[in-house]
Structure formats: structure tokens, C-alpha cells
Nucleic acid binder design. Sequence first.
DNA 1: GTCTATAACTCGATAGAC
DNA 2: GTCTATCGAGTTATAGAC
Lengths: 210, 210
Amino acid sequence: MNDQSSKKGETKEVIVEAARQLFFEQGYTATGIAQILKRSEVNSGSLYYFFPTKEDLLAAVLERYKGMLWPMVLEPAYTRVTDPIERIFAVLHGYRMLLLGTDFRLGCPIGNLALEMSNSHPQVRNLVVENFNGWRAAIAQLITEASDRLPQDIDAESMSFFVLATMEGAVMLARAHQDISPFDSAINSLRDQFDRLIQDGSTWSTPKGA
Amino acid sequence: MNDQSSKKGETKEVIVEAARQLFFEQGYTATGIAQILKRSEVNSGSLYYFFPTKEDLLAAVLERYKGMLWPMVLEPAYTRVTDPIERIFAVLHGYRMLLLGTDFRLGCPIGNLALEMSNSHPQVRNLVVENFNGWRAAIAQLITEASDRLPQDIDAESMSFFVLATMEGAVMLARAHQDISPFDSAINSLRDQFDRLIQDGSTWSTPKGA
DNA sequence: GTCTATAACTCGATAGAC
DNA sequence: GTCTATCGAGTTATAGAC
């Protein structure tokens, strides 16, 4: 129970949070250590005590994102609605709100890093994949929960890739256009897809005309 | 018809092409002017004679991409197949080949820049949108050509956003995973969507059982 | 664990001769 | 239009006292 040194033991977390915000807003390469020091109000010596390299700091940020999936992405959506299909679109609605609430400056932090870092940094790429997998696992679970309404040959894993891909692309287009309508077009088409799957799936489980 | 100075008048193009490649491989921020000079075998003075700032060079790269849409993306796909729906998926197949052929290092250059630059650089963002619009216009045209097989309420413009979003997300996921299966999952789901639309659309134009 | 000072280097961009 | 030399600021990271 030693108290380490001066304040609380929160310095490390303060650094990670400042870095997370700046990487989100500007990207990894475009963010300098000096900026992170300024926003976290920490000195260079402390930062490098915890994170020997900038890439180690990015790894910590991506670990933090894994812990944010439930409280920041899933839980708010699951609270609003209970139907599994509706929960999928409630999750997507969260990104819509983020785009609108930040004037299209913030979209999906993992998607940003995925495209920026996929080539060069293997460890980072791995953490990006872990974040994607966590997100997809939740979507796949919801699809499985709704499987009695869907055609039998629907694969939840494959479908979760489709939902994630469409979301990431939709966020990208809305940010580029600085307009929500590309996002809405893509997500409405995805909704249409689910509607048609449910129609087809229901022909053998709960026929509409029977 | 004056010959300007030394070699041919190709210096400017050589610079743009070197910059295009490096921005594609590494991103804009991560690419230094020195690297561009090295790959193009041009000296600093020449580069800054044509492009006063790095951002001006990026703008020229994005203009070049507009000119590459037909010869590099559309024409190869249109040559292989003639059916409009098949042409859409032939275009998408081109990205699949690029991913596999570069071991997932290269995906969509416009998508990369869209996420990296959308916040900070307005002129660049505009050129990104123009590139997206050119791509979507081609897809929307193909959807219109196939409209006799699709439900009447299908909007080609909206659908083109959906196709582009899914493609961009699919490329992102394949690059992050360094595996083509996320791409295939997403594109196969998109194909499934078109199949279902054609089934529904054909019930009023060319009924299967009639 | 935190502080200040700074090393070692790269960045985008410029100057001025040719 | 192209050349070389370089500026000034910014970069990641380190050293050593406390």
C-alpha cells in the first residue's frame, strides 16, 4: 500500500486519456508527444517512465478502447431497446450521434487507426483486430439471438463483418462529406437488407399469412 | 512550343507520381518531402517550384486519382463483363485483387486520405469527395441500367453510397486482419442483398413462375 | 515517480546562384 | 526550371538531479 510518490497513482491514466483524445482527433502520426504532455499536464520524464516509446502509448490507448466497448458503445444502446435487431441499429445510431455531436470531426477511433497503422506496426494492427473482434462478437451475438426470424443459412460471423464494414464505410463517407446523408443512406440500406432477411426467414417460422 | 529548360516537361508528373505512391503506401503525414525527392530523383528546388506547399502536392495527387478512375478502376472491370450488376461486383473484385497482390498493404487510396485528412484540410476534403462522387456516379449508372430487375423504390444514388461504404469498410477490415475473408464476407453479403432485390423486383416485371 | 535541460534528428520550406 | 546549402521549428527520446 505504498503511495508511490506525489499525487495519486493516476498519472499513467491521465497520459493515456490525453493521448487517446489527441490520436482520435488528429491521428497517431500527426500528434506529437509535446501535445500529449501539454494536454495531460505531465512532464516528459513521467511519460517516458511509463511508456518507453510512442508506440507503447498507442498500445495502451488501444487497450483502453477494448475496455470502453461495453460502457460507451454497447450499454447505452442496449438500455434504449431490447430487441436484438433493434440493438444492432441502436449501436449504429450511437455513431450517428457522435458524428452529429462533433460536427463530423470524430467517427470511429479504431477505423481511423486501422487505416493509418495497418501496414507498418504489427503489434498495433493486432490490437486493432482485437477491438474489431470485440465489436463484432457483440453484433454476432445479437444476430444469433434473432436467428429464429432470419433465414437458416445466415452466418452470424460473416454477417457481423458486413455490419462492421458498412458502419466503418458509412462513418468515413459522412466525415468526408461533412454531411450525415451518406451515413443514413448506407445504414438505411443495411436496415432494408435485414427487413428482407426477416421476411424471407419468417416464411418458414412464423408465416405472415397463416 | 518552347521547351522550358533541360529534359522533357515531365518533372512535375514524376513528382506527383512519386508522392502518390508514397501517400498511398504510408499516408500523407507519415510521408516526408525528403522521401518524395528521393523516389522522384528531383531536388528540393524543383519540387517547391511546382508545389509551394506539401498540401498543394496532395491536391495534385487527388486530381490525378480522378483521372485514374476510368482506366484503372472501371475500364478493366467493364471489359471483363457486360451485365451492369456484374460490373459492380467486377469493380469490387478489382480491390480484392489489389489487396491480395500487395499482401494487404494497399487498399483504397481515397479512403485512406478521407480518414486521415477529413478534419483538418478543407480543400483536400473537397477533392476526396469529388473522387468518391466519380466512383459513385459510375455505380449509380450501373444500378440505373439494371433498374428493370430491381424494386421500383430503389434509389440509385442512395444505393451507391451503400456500395461504396461497404467496399471501403471491407477493404479496411481485410487490411487490418491481413486476411481476405472479412472482405469476402462483406462483399458476399452485399451480393446476397442484390440477389434478394432482384428476386423482389422480378415479381412485378418478369415473374419466375409465369 | 517527477523534474528540467537537451541531444540527435527530421520536418516543411526558403535563398540565391546558375 | 534546377541546383546546393541551410534555416528555424518541431520531432522522439534521453540524462541526471531530486
